[in-house]
């Protein structure tokens, strides 16, 4: 099961949980399951988020693979100048 880390306001939306264990093979699965488990978080998962999967930032990437031992960190989307 992937370990999902909530930081920033995501933790608030996840009812104060710092982490969650989620079984998912890719980002789409992961987001769907997260939304099911944390209804308050669900509306925020469509746009404006990024995932750091094992330290690597993935944005708008529903089919990026998630390994069973992955650490997935939910972050606000990043851009830059």
């Amino acid at each position: 099961m992937a370990r999902v880390v909530f930081i920033g306001n995501f933790r608030q939306l996840a009812g104060g949980d710092a982490e969650a264990e989620i079984a998912a093979s890719n980002v789409r699965d992961l987001l769907r399951r997260l939304g099911e488990r944390y209804p308050a978080l669900a509306p925020h998962l469509d746009e404006g988020i990024a995932l750091a999967i094992d330290g690597e930032i993935h944005q708008d990437a529903l089919f990026s693979p998630v390994r069973p031992d992955s650490e997935v960190c939910l972050m606000p989307k990043i851009a830059g100048g």
Partner: peptide, 9 residues
């Protein structure tokens, strides 16, 4: 583990 959450490569 970066201060903003993820673990650095």
């Amino acid at each position: 583990k970066a201060a903003y959450g993820p673990t650095f490569g």
